[in-house]
């Protein structure tokens, strides 16, 4: 499912119609309808998906919004961790990159 190289300008989207999310404690079970798979997300990856559903954005944009929502700072959640989380969501098909040129 992982899509090739992405850039800082790549817009990440999530298709709300493609999954069902149920929360238990601080854990989120996501059923992906198109793939028939069930994924377990934590509060960070769940927030990334929620933000990408509400308003697709590039890595920096999503990072800022997610940190704001979760009341975290960059020390709690380094950008590398955020980026690797986005890539993991891409790999399982919960996020998709949509090429976007800002130039």
């Amino acid at each position: 499912m992982a899509v090739g190289p992405y850039t800082s300008q790549t817009i990440w989207i999530a298709e709300a119609d493609d999954f069902v999310i149920r929360q238990f404690e601080d854990v989120y079970f996501v059923f992906c309808k198109s793939a028939g798979t069930t994924h377990l997300l934590n509060f960070l990856t769940a927030s990334i998906v929620k933000n990408a559903v509400d308003k697709p954005g590039n890595m920096k944009d999503l990072y800022d919004r997610v940190l704001n929502d979760l009341e975290l700072d960059a020390e709690d959640c380094p950008s590398e961790l955020f980026e690797s989380s986005v890539v993991q969501l891409d790999e399982v098909g919960l996020l998709k990159p949509k090429e976007y040129s800002n130039a």
Binding site: V20, F29, F31, K33, G36, T38
Partner: peptide, 9 residues
């Protein structure tokens, strides 16, 4: 699939 996910949860 989805029916199982819903029933189980």
């Amino acid at each position: 699939g989805e029916a199982a996910y819903k029933a189980l949860t």
